[in-house]
């Protein structure tokens, strides 16, 4: 009697497991379950990461002072270079915003970001997803884009209270709407199954795309914000027997190496950061936009001649206000 009971239990559990897999792949009904149960296993996850963390701590302690000073120097240099670039990017950003306003296109600004860390927890290295140490508690949501310092990494597919799983762009199920940076040609990338390969399907044989082209997110579909690099085209093969080009690209993000990643909230303004801004920034920011606004106005034929000044000034003020 007990025997048949065990058999029945087994069959029920099999059914439940298959049901779980189906429900979890096709719906989000299990998100609350995962959020709650996820808390229970969080201590185990921390425990599993302990050896790696300890190793890193030890190797950091073991670094000699000159080594650390070198590293510090390197980072200082990098920071200076980046802040110079940032200033340039900021003025471009302001100019871009004004031009878009003149064209009455929708505004497109910087996005709110948050730093997260990859926890290398995976029983199966082949599955193209990683776990990060931010979850619902940090307002992470399913479908959220994830970047690293070099480009788009992927998107959040599952969240629990404290962790989330990120599916990489190289996952065969992941499709990212992109465009060729050089000419604005729209395309898609899909994962090729290994960490260094992306496919670009459905492009006609006479499409203008070549080796070395950079593919950036096009913002189509509304999930990934516009303008972040995704991949670089490695080879373009023409096969006369096939209607489409065979294009292989490599992801720009360093998928196998990055530890720190950025979670992006597209459309949300960034939190104010203390930038090393020169003190006269306020004055020039007000003056410069008016100039560029005029220049843009004289080139743009759609805007009425009288409105140029006003639009330029208004945009300048807008940019100014944003910066404060």
């Amino acid at each position: 009697m007990q025997h048949s009971g065990a058999n029945l239990r087994f069959l029920v559990l099999l059914f439940v497991s298959v049901l779980l897999i189906n429900v979890d792949t096709h719906t989000r009904a299990l998100a609350p379950v995962r959020a709650v149960l996820g808390i229970a296993v969080a201590p185990l996850q921390s425990l599993a990461l302990l050896p790696r963390r300890a190793g890193e701590w030890v190797s950091l302690r073991a670094m000699s002072e000159p080594e650390l000073l070198d590293r510090l120097d390197e980072l200082e240099d990098e920071r200076l270079r980046l802040s110079a670039e940032l200033q340039r990017a900021e003025s471009l950003e302001a100019e871009n915003r004004r031009l878009r306003e003149l064209l009455s296109a929708s505004r497109r600004g910087l996005d709110r970001v948050m730093l997260a860390e990859i926890e290398d927890i995976s029983f199966e290295p082949s599955v193209q997803s990683v776990l990060i140490n931010k979850g619902i508690a940090h307002q992470v949501y399913e479908g959220q884009p994830v970047l690293d310092a070099h480009g788009v990494m992927g998107q959040v597919v599952r969240t629990s209270y404290l962790k989330s799983a990120v599916s990489l762009v190289t996952d065969p199920g992941q499709t990212v709407p992109v465009m060729v940076e050089r000419n604005g040609l729209r395309a898609l990338t899909t994962g090729g199954g290994s960490l260094d390969r992306l496919d670009v399907p459905y492009l006609d044989r006479n499409t203008d795309i070549r080796r070395g082209d950079v593919l950036v997110t096009s913002g189509m579909g509304g999930r990934f914000p516009y303008g972040y690099p995704v991949a670089r085209v490695l080879e373009v093969t023409v096969d006369v027997n096939e209607p489409f080009l065979r294009i292989v690209a490599e992801p720009v993000a360093r998928l196998g190496y990055s530890r720190e990643v950025l979670l992006v909230w597209p459309g949300e303004p960034p939190e104010p950061v203390d930038l090393p801004a020169p003190p006269e920034d306020h004055g020039t920011a007000g003056a410069k936009p008016a100039e560029t606004g005029d220049a843009a106005g004289s080139e743009t034929t759609v805007a009425p001649a009288g409105g140029d000044e006003a639009a330029g000034a208004a945009a300048g003020e807008g940019a100014d206000a944003d910066r404060q």
Partner: peptide, 8 residues
Amino acid sequence: LLTGGILG
């Protein structure tokens, strides 16, 4: 739950 994968 530990691996953050699909439940089941």
